[in-house]
Design a protein around this nucleic acid. Structure first.
Lengths: 146, 146
DNA sequence: ATCTTTGCAAACTTTTTGCACCAAT
DNA sequence: ATTGGTGCAAAAAGTTTGCAAAGAT
């Protein structure tokens, strides 16, 4: 657990480096937002990011969170995806996966993008359509709830 | 084409009947909204519905459109789905299909739900997850743009 | 010193709601 | 005559923007 924390920290540092490499400045706000995203493993909403960051920095405005998220998207560090219920969540770009959301218990399970490999191939073969894989939020019933 | 129009009209009538059967009243506003949805074949946004309806009934308010759509959803006549870009669209419930949206030319192509049959099976077999199919908006490049 | 980033307030988009009036049954 | 539906205005919820002050280089 100590080294998990450490690896999170180094991941934050790495992203800060990318930020600087991209011509942006190192700021505490950005570091705080990045830390929350890295720590959360997976996806998180803008509002949740703001709430968590504001525990440490109460003066931080939501607009700063949104602006930071936009910057991180411009640098291809995070992606924004919309679930099938219309809610937007953000995640690290290298953390690509789909989500299975249980409509009954609300649990969210991650699964690899390879799930759609077959669909991707079918689309190309049958329709000539080149799928750009994006994380999907799929809904249904989880194992436990069936 | 004459009988296409006719079948649209009879489809509108049928939905109005379902509405009454569901304990709601027949109103011009509702008829107008239903007509637009039936005529559009496929999916359409609330705002587009409002714009089209207002060509015939300029006094119709967006709130009425939203309320009508909510009523139609309660009666399982229409579904609301969110595309991967976060936009919401409405479609007749019996008109189930996925969408391929080209990121370059903006074209939208429909394709049958059977596309996901394999995925549905894999999810059940590998994860015990029972997928509830909802229309997906998938993004990529269409045949012409590749 | 310069140019970027931030906080604040305000605007914007999409959807929902309260209320008095109107319409369908 | 009732009860439900509509228009209007206003409110939410989520996201974006203009601007002057604060901060990073």
């Amino acid at each position: 657990m100590a080294n998990v924390k450490q690896s999170h920290q180094s991941q934050v540092d790495e992203i800060m480096r990318q930020l600087v490499a991209g011509g942006r400045r190192r700021t505490m706000s950005r570091q705080a937002v990045i830390k929350v995203i890295v720590d959360c493993h997976g996806h998180i909403s803008a509002d949740d990011i703001a709430t968590r960051v504001q525990k440490d920095f109460p003066s931080m405005d939501v607009s700063t969170v949104y602006r930071t998220l936009e910057t991180l998207r411009e640098l291809d560090i995070v992606d924004r995806v919309y679930f099938a219920d219309g809610s937007a969540v953000y995640h690290l770009r290298d953390h690509q996966h789909h989500h299975l959301c249980c409509e009954r218990c609300g649990s969210v399970q991650e699964l690899p993008v390879s799930l759609m490999a077959r669909v991707e191939k079918d689309l190309l073969d049958d329709f000539g359509f080149e799928l750009h894989q994006r994380p999907l939020g799929l809904f249904g019933l989880c194992k436990a709830c069936r």
